[in-house]
Simulated scan of single mutants.
Amino acid sequence: MTSEELAQIGARRVIADADRGFPCRISLEDARAGESLILLNHVSHDVANPFRTAYAIYVREQACEPEPWIDSLPPVFAGRALSLRGFDAQGMLCDAALAQPEETEEKIRALFENPQVAGIHAHNAAHGCFAARIERD
């Protein structure tokens, strides 16, 4: 899409100016300096209740299919404090945790010990943008 076409849908093209700080929501890796990304609004929690959530995300222009990270943490979590939000089957927030980088896996496991938690949404704690959805296996 051209810059004008992107602007019509509220998105824009950006060039990463560092190897960190531009987390792609498809590959779940940070873009490298010089890579082109699309910055757009994304509804990460599309529910008909007060917890419906939308925020800005980055997507690498060359990203194709999402990488399934099963029983392991994606690279984009490394070195980031995360807000972990546990939602029940109706999409209502029922539990949450703040995870420092070295605590992420432990905090995810603890949230899933709550039988009400159907899924977890990870958000970057500092900037608040959606990082990934974590599902029960």
Rank of each mutant, 00 (worst) to 15 (best):
E61P: 01
L111T: 00
P101E: 08
G79W: 13
Q90E: 11
R80D: 05
E65K: 07
E102T: 02
A89Q: 15
A97C: 00
E103W: 02
I108V: 11
A81P: 15
E65N: 13
E102I: 04
I70W: 11
Q100L: 12
A96K: 00
P74N: 13
E103V: 01
F77V: 04
E102H: 12
E65Y: 12
A99L: 00
D95F: 02
P75R: 05
A110K: 04
E67P: 03
M92S: 05
A97D: 09
P68W: 03
E67D: 06
P75Q: 15
W69S: 08
A81R: 13
A96T: 00
A99T: 04
A89C: 12
V59L: 03
E102C: 08
S83I: 03
M92R: 06
L111F: 02
K107P: 14
D71N: 15
S72M: 14
F77R: 01
Q62C: 05
A99S: 02
I108E: 12
V59M: 02
P74Y: 15
A99W: 00
S83G: 06
Q100M: 13
V76N: 02
L73R: 02
E103A: 11
E106Q: 14
E67A: 13
V76C: 13
P66L: 07
C64P: 06
I70N: 09
P74K: 15
E105D: 15
R80P: 07
A63G: 09
L82D: 07
R80K: 14
L73Q: 06
A89T: 05
L82M: 08
A78Y: 10
I108C: 12
S83Q: 11
A96S: 06
A110G: 04
E61Y: 00
S72P: 10
G86H: 14
Q100D: 13
L98K: 08
W69E: 14
Q100A: 13
D95H: 05
G79M: 06
D71P: 03
K107N: 05
V59I: 07
R80I: 04
E65L: 12
L98H: 08
Q90W: 09
A81D: 11
L93N: 06
A63K: 03
Q100T: 07
E102W: 01
W69R: 04
W69P: 06
D95I: 01
C64Y: 05
I108L: 14
E106M: 10
W69K: 03
A110N: 07
A63E: 10
P68Q: 10
F87R: 09
P101Y: 03
A63S: 10
L93M: 04
S83W: 02
E105P: 09
L93H: 02
P66I: 06
E105Y: 10
T104E: 05
G86K: 08
F87S: 05
A89G: 04
C64I: 06
P68T: 10
A110Y: 11
F87D: 10
E106C: 04
R80Q: 09
E61D: 03
T104G: 09
P101L: 14
L84R: 01
P74F: 15
R85G: 01
E103L: 08
D95R: 00
C64S: 14
V76K: 02
E102Q: 10
A96F: 01
A110V: 03
A78G: 12
A97E: 04
C94R: 10
E103I: 02
C94A: 05
E67Y: 08
W69Q: 11
E106N: 13
Q100Y: 07
V76Q: 03
L98Q: 11
